[in-house]
Amino acid sequence: MHPDVSDIKLSVKIDRFEQDLFNIDTTELVKAAAQLKAKYPDFYPIYFRNILRNTDPIDTNNINMISMIKDNRDFSLLKHDIDSVYPKLDDVEKQLTAAFKYYKFYFPEKQVPKIVTYLADFQLGASTVNNTLAIELDMFMGKGYRFYQSKSVNLPYFIQRKLNKDHIAPFALKAFAQQQFPMNERDKTLLHRMIYNGKILYFLDSTLPDVADSAKIGFSQKQIEWCNTYKADMWTDFMGQGLLYSTDELKYAKYLNDAPFTSGQENDSAPMLGVWTGWQIVRQYMKENPEVTLAQLMNESDSQKILKDSKYKPK
């Protein structure tokens, strides 16, 4: 049962940084760049310095970089393709409006971020800085997109499969949650990382309740079904091999990292089995402890407590 958020007055409007960037008047570049920077005070410096990696110490206002982008054939083609696929973002705005209404329900004191879109060179999908949530539209162009197939990009199919509009909101909300609730890096155990990822996905359960599990975690429906079929076997393996409390990241990385399937398992297995299992533990914990709020869950740093109080024993 979803909480009633109809009384929460909120409407998400997405600012199109990539359109404003390409609409810059090059005859008055210094003035136009200053106006762009004024409209996007958080994102402007991050975009050029961190995302596009402008290291020119002289180009402090990114004038040369802007000229390069506007003159670059690949950037122009990419901008054309983005405009074709996403002439408007009404559906995404509607979905994010609903998501952030739920967010305000659970975290009434928190501020809703400014949301912008941009184009880059196939990097992050979404990122956050201060109070800006930025969505990289070139990472959601659909499988088979021409640049994904190019030699310079060459994204594997298992990645391309989720680079579409259905994954924009889950990807953005995940990046936002990771900024709001960063992981305690001191705890190196697999259990801690499983539970942390599980909490992030439970945050998506709460803010995107109508989105399919497959879109939240980035699995195919067959991979979701595989996990449900073998969840007890997975748990037996984690417990039997003593992996839960291992701090050897080389030993357990395959259970957290994305891949076509999990190494050592059959080829139709799901990847990220630790992430999926952590999600189920957190779901079970919240079911067993209905008095725990989403805010309390996200701020709970004791992964062992969550495991113990979840009574997680899949069959």
Rank of each mutant, 00 (worst) to 15 (best):
I24R: 08
K104L: 11
G125R: 03
Y145C: 03
P156G: 13
Q123A: 13
F100S: 01
A169K: 11
Q280T: 08
H80W: 12
G142W: 10
S76Y: 11
S303L: 12
D233N: 15
F219Q: 01
A172P: 06
K94H: 04
L273K: 09
K188N: 06
T132I: 03
Y252E: 05
L10H: 12
K162H: 10
M68A: 13
G242N: 10
P87S: 00
D309E: 15
S310R: 02
L21I: 06
S246N: 01
R186V: 07
D56T: 00
E291W: 04
T128N: 06
R49K: 13
T60S: 09
G125I: 05
P170G: 02
P260C: 02
E225Q: 13
Y148P: 02
L243K: 07
T117M: 06
D237M: 15
N257G: 14
T236Y: 10
V292D: 14
Q179L: 06
K143P: 04
G274C: 06
K31V: 06
N54T: 11
E225Y: 11
E300S: 11
I195Q: 01
V116K: 03
N154E: 02
A34Q: 15
F122L: 03
D25E: 08
A253F: 14
P314N: 11
P41D: 08
V112S: 13
A270F: 01
L294C: 06
P57H: 07
G240I: 13
M286V: 07
G264Q: 05
L204W: 13
E136N: 07
Y103D: 04
Q304P: 12
N164F: 07
M141E: 02
N54W: 02
D213F: 07
I115R: 04
E93P: 00
A175C: 13
M65R: 12
F147C: 09
L294D: 05
F100H: 01
A270C: 10
M68D: 09
S11A: 14
Q179N: 09
F75A: 10
R73F: 10
R283Q: 11
K165M: 09
T229Q: 14
K216S: 00
E18S: 04
I159N: 09
M68K: 10
P182G: 04
L36W: 11
L250P: 12
G142R: 09
V129T: 06
M194A: 02
N72W: 08
P108R: 05
R73K: 14
V153R: 12
G240C: 12
A32H: 10
T128V: 15
D187Y: 13
F181Y: 09
Y148V: 08
S310P: 05
I14S: 02
L244H: 04
A212F: 07
M68P: 00
S76F: 10
S67G: 08
L96C: 00
G274M: 06
P260F: 06
E185M: 08
H2Y: 05
G144M: 09
R146D: 06
E288W: 00
W276S: 03
K305G: 03
G274F: 05
A33D: 02
Q296I: 07
K165S: 08
A270R: 02
F261C: 12
A259N: 12
I281R: 05
R16T: 05
S6R: 08
N54K: 04
N131H: 15
K165C: 03
G144A: 09
R193H: 13
Y44G: 03
A175W: 07
F75N: 02
F43Y: 15
I168D: 05
I8N: 10
Y230F: 15
Y245M: 15
N61C: 01
Q280P: 01
M286N: 04
F181R: 06
